[in-house]
Write a protein that binds this DNA or RNA. Sequence first.
DNA 1: CTGAAAGCGCTTACAG
DNA 2: CTGAAAGCGCTTACAG
Lengths: 367, 367
Amino acid sequence: MAYLKGAPRSLAATSLLLTQERVETVARPTVNDIAKEAGVSLATVDRVLNGRPGVRKKTVEKVNEAIRRIGYVRDITAANLARRREYHFVFVLPESDSLFLQSVRDMVNEVAELSRLDRTRITILPVPAHDPHLIAARLGELATVAVDGVAILAPETPPVRDAIRHLKEQDRAVVTLVSDQPNSDRDHFVGVDNVMAGRTAGALMGRFLGPGRHRVMVLVNSMQARDSLERRFGFDQVIAESWPDIEVLPSLEGRDDMDYISSLLPRALEQRGAVDGLYVLGAGNREVSRVLKSLGLSQQVTVIAHELTESTRRGLESGVVDAVITQNVGHIVRSAIRVLRATCDGTPIIEAQEKIRLEIVIRENLP
Amino acid sequence: MAYLKGAPRSLAATSLLLTQERVETVARPTVNDIAKEAGVSLATVDRVLNGRPGVRKKTVEKVNEAIRRIGYVRDITAANLARRREYHFVFVLPESDSLFLQSVRDMVNEVAELSRLDRTRITILPVPAHDPHLIAARLGELATVAVDGVAILAPETPPVRDAIRHLKEQDRAVVTLVSDQPNSDRDHFVGVDNVMAGRTAGALMGRFLGPGRHRVMVLVNSMQARDSLERRFGFDQVIAESWPDIEVLPSLEGRDDMDYISSLLPRALEQRGAVDGLYVLGAGNREVSRVLKSLGLSQQVTVIAHELTESTRRGLESGVVDAVITQNVGHIVRSAIRVLRATCDGTPIIEAQEKIRLEIVIRENLP
DNA sequence: CTGAAAGCGCTTACAG
DNA sequence: CTGAAAGCGCTTACAG
């Protein structure tokens, strides 16, 4: 273990411990050591190590035995150097001008630049957000070209799910991003639990509104998307459990149309009478701030929104938005790449590191 | 750029783009290319690349010119392989049985195990928490042994600050952890802004208590530590700014003594009359839960605490604790190692990745 | 001040 | 089915 047991009693002891450790460091065994130990050539060791065919069963056993005996662990960087291994990953992202998706794209581009130093090429493939068949077709294309891994951000649909299955059959590493595709054979999902996100939003709404009867309006882009449904579900769940005096109104669907939201929202706010809370479940944050300000309601209404973007950040700073539930885009993109690479290499991932946190941001902890 | 400009018009176009890119990929230039381009040997290229002496000025220029021309970027993994470079980092951590410090130790041990695959050895050096001179002496020892980098978690004091300066003179990479040592020449601070942490705690306290007059008690381990002072400062600041009706009482110092806290707290709660909020600034979370429950106050008092540990987690789950302000220990430890390594290699760090987030945890987003 | 050769830990043709 | 030799991109003695 790395832990020096007990506190060293004197300075001399400390020094001794550290220098001794240095001296006694035993060189890690290499392929050469295996070859010697097993009495075979390097090439044979390599064949066994990489599970390549054309080795007698008995020889395989001999080599594996030697590996076990000397406790060999492969140096993956040396292997990649010798192989001239390069990774080519494609990020399949919807063509959408939402600030969140924009930040994902920007982050992918930024990380792509740095990844070239790690022999990793990253490409963005934009797809129409709402055409599952076209998305599936594009994914089908990826199964025919020289791509090692694919990260997909798309609504859950059967064609996409099948296309992912096909990618896996073609031996590509696949992760889903932000919104999962369950039952699709993807290797990993990089994102948060959206039911939990909705519950968190609901709990904050309840606590911020405080005791008493309140009405909460919910604004959503479209109730088609799985993530929206899950968030609304979690929100309703926690409100029903803990704040039964809060009435949550039916979702108002903005349908990805900013002008529509801008006209819908003021009418709804007036028509439905006093509203104390607004839960912005999907897009439309820019419009919300504008409308609330123009109606002079920005201080009266408690607003909880999702995803920290330029517009929700300004909302927090100006006090229109009270809390934002978000996921770190940089973490998501880097995690996706680490997981894709680990999948290609067949190495394990560090679960805790790849777990995307559900972050709560208020004005005071704005990064 | 990695971004494929515009949406491809047809599937054929997509496929073409990707395969073409593959074909046109130009091999990255290597040291051999520099040598050819500059008309010198590999050894000379290496000398220039690593700034080693014994090369004529004119030759240096010739090589640098070639490097610039062909756009060479060094492959650090190949360099480390050839060098048989190993990193040896020491984490200097206080001997304390606080759950937070325990989790830091556990995480260092866990990461240490995995880091051996990356030619990185990590050792923990335990030091007495409250003896600055002894800590400084231990750090002095580290400057004499074969250690590449040191991560230090210790209260800010002049002896420690000077010891860090000395480590830097001996060319060790140094980062401070959790609690910074400003003016110490450390290369980097891995942790959060504690004034911000206090402000965040204050804002949550204000919002959770709601409008009206309230009294808040503050429990702290010791007001000596810089991080405690900063948190209290931020807390008071935001309360004064935004919730002037909240009265924040003087800090109660627990002095690292669990029994003392257990007897102090009930007396203070009774003596001071109605208390609506409790801000647990430092240690003592285990006692707080016990005392509040035994007094039957766990539902009446709003509790905000720091650091997500076993005990604050249980507090959140049982409803005694309302929110926890925390920093991800895994992220801190991994960040420290990445920064130490980058400092040793002289490579840049990714600021956004190394920025430790101030996380808010309530029952609903408990990881 | 400069270069030829060997080597880091691993893989890849090629030959047998 | 197995092995000797060359090579990945870089560095390190050693010789001149």
